[in-house]
Computed example of a mutant assay.
Amino acid sequence: MTETAIEFRGVVKRYGEAVAVAGIDLTIAKGELVTFLGPSGCGKTTSLRLIAGLELPSEGQVLIAGRDVSRDPASARNVGMVFQSYALFPHMSVLDNVAYGPVIRGTKRPAARARAAEILDQVGLSGLHQRLPSELSGGQQQRVAVARAIVQQPDVILFDEPLSNVDAKLRRKVREEIRSLQRRFGLTAVYVTHDQEEALAVSDRIVVMQQGRIAQIGTPADLYERPASPFIADFIGDANLIAGHVAQGRFTAPGLSLDVPGPEGQAMLSLRPERIGLDPGGPDLIASATYLGSRIEYGIQTPAGDLLVSRPITETPLPVGTRVHLRIDPKDASRVA
């Protein structure tokens, strides 16, 4: 039986008349990395702060390791946190930064430093113990921040937009390091980001927030391949949303007809740009073509509306003005409304 690490039970958070979190029910398993994802103001950061104890719920309960911590302050929760800015002490060595938490919690300094040295070695920072944070790269500083959170053996570790201060070229490497450390230590982790690619790359499950509510929960593949609504389809990656009608198991829109099971009536399909093939000769028109290194993005004018199509650079490029036929496999179309 999977052990529960964090549980939200009907959690509401209000700021005066404004509702930041509007009734969340959520269970996070021990050892799982769950990401809260959504646009600004959706409630994702407030949800993280409710776990940390930096905010208290207006209604409902927050449980950590089976204990109701809803009214407990941050200091009474066994939670580690990695901030956007890393919040490393600039005047302290890497070793003392990591040992600081155990020391202020009552661990003797030699024991705290020994434990800190062990964790630093495990996160790949052996030989750098006596350096100052300013003498480290951004990726190394990130690992120090993670080590400082891990050293206290928290029930859960929280990542608040951890890559926002990392150079774009380092983000892939750092997010891979975070995921590797989370798995190596078996950490229960909650991660907050507004970056869809980042969420897809690091998460076991993603909680997509919309206006203070959970819009959909699922694995990265679930959310990308089977979005539950137009909002999810449009927010997770790129999507072509096509309005039409379903009758007798067939979806029809101007210039488009596909077998789509489900209820009859008005409907909307989501088509990912990379799942649409292009064949020369047909009723549709290439209105634009953008070279993006590994792929070309085409803007296609169709009777159903303007569509985005992404094709690998290995295919023969098609010039603007070419008439094309769209090649769509019905299994690649997701009904979102």
Rank of each mutant, 00 (worst) to 15 (best):
T314C: 11
T193W: 00
R171Q: 03
G186W: 01
A247K: 11
L269K: 00
S270P: 00
A304S: 14
P319W: 14
Y15M: 13
A74Q: 11
P162N: 07
Q216T: 09
G124A: 09
E177A: 05
K13T: 05
S180D: 12
R148I: 08
D332P: 04
E197C: 01
S203N: 04
N78Y: 06
R179Q: 07
E176T: 05
I242W: 01
A114V: 05
N240V: 01
G212R: 10
A221F: 05
K44N: 10
L292W: 00
L125D: 02
M209C: 07
V98W: 14
E264V: 01
Q122I: 05
D96K: 12
G299H: 02
K13F: 05
G53M: 10
V21M: 07
M81I: 15
E59G: 05
G23H: 08
Y15H: 11
F89I: 07
D259N: 09
K331G: 11
Q130S: 06
S47R: 10
A145H: 03
A22L: 06
E7T: 14
P154F: 00
V174R: 01
A52Y: 08
R71V: 12
A111W: 03
E17A: 15
R109H: 11
L187H: 05
R295D: 11
A116F: 00
A111D: 15
Q211M: 09
E198A: 06
V309S: 06
V69H: 03
L269R: 00
L271Y: 03
I313V: 14
I313T: 13
G321T: 13
Q182N: 13
A116R: 02
D72L: 15
V246C: 13
A253D: 07
R213F: 01
P317M: 12
A99V: 12
A253Y: 02
Q141H: 06
D96I: 08
R205H: 10
D167T: 07
I28P: 04
V166Q: 12
Y298G: 14
P230I: 08
A76S: 15
E225V: 11
E225C: 06
L181H: 07
P220D: 08
P230E: 03
K331Q: 15
G60N: 10
S75M: 13
F8V: 09
A337H: 13
G66C: 08
